[in-house]
Amino acid sequence: MTHALAIDTTSDYLSLAVLKGERPAGSRYLPCGVKATQIVIQEIDGLLTGAGLTAHDLELIVVAVGPGSFTGTRIGMAAAATFGQVLARPVIGVDTLQLLAAQTEPAADVTFHALLNCARDEVYHAAYRWNGVPVALGPIAMTTFGELHRVVGEAPVVARRFDPAPANGEDPLSRFDPMPLRRPHPDAELLLELGLARYREHPAGPFPLPQPIYLKSEAFRKWRR
């Protein structure tokens, strides 16, 4: 029996899900902008109450560690870390690109990419193969759309953007080959799945406190050149 809570505040959505004894027992996917701090605890409370649980029943906390909004990421991680610390339960971090990649479920021999466009010409990306969960073929990188084409080529992608698409002109994400999705949103129920899979690989731990992923080096590399 595992009761678990997943928290994702890396985007403009507050995304929460709770697992009660292996079964999904409720979720939230609310647009909240920068107001995540204001609502996150009450929403967690509402969710747990609805599932007939209290925070003290939780055995595992899963949290999205970015990349994404820095402030947003910190809010979710601050909450998750505090839950872990007070409840003395493991906190498992899952990155947002693996979360994106989990929206689809291709055949095992397909290499595909997850793309996350956070601001203007900055794209986070990573390549995956499916093996029960999306398995990353390398570290998350940050690049520009120009360079991204060289890396991704014709491979299929799961893509997401945080900012609205450019009003005039084509959305650069639309130039890539989109994959069919098994879930419409990279929501916290998916986050729970991934966290649980990670937990079951090493249920005895250790569980170091997850660290946020801040990748913004590209702009600075360019600057130094």
């Binding site: 909004s69 402030t71 801040y214 080096s217």
Partner: peptide, 8 residues
């Protein structure tokens, strides 16, 4: 500056 969001 990398610790800050653009909107900050």
């Amino acid at each position: 500056m990398l610790e800050l969001d653009r909107d900050d």
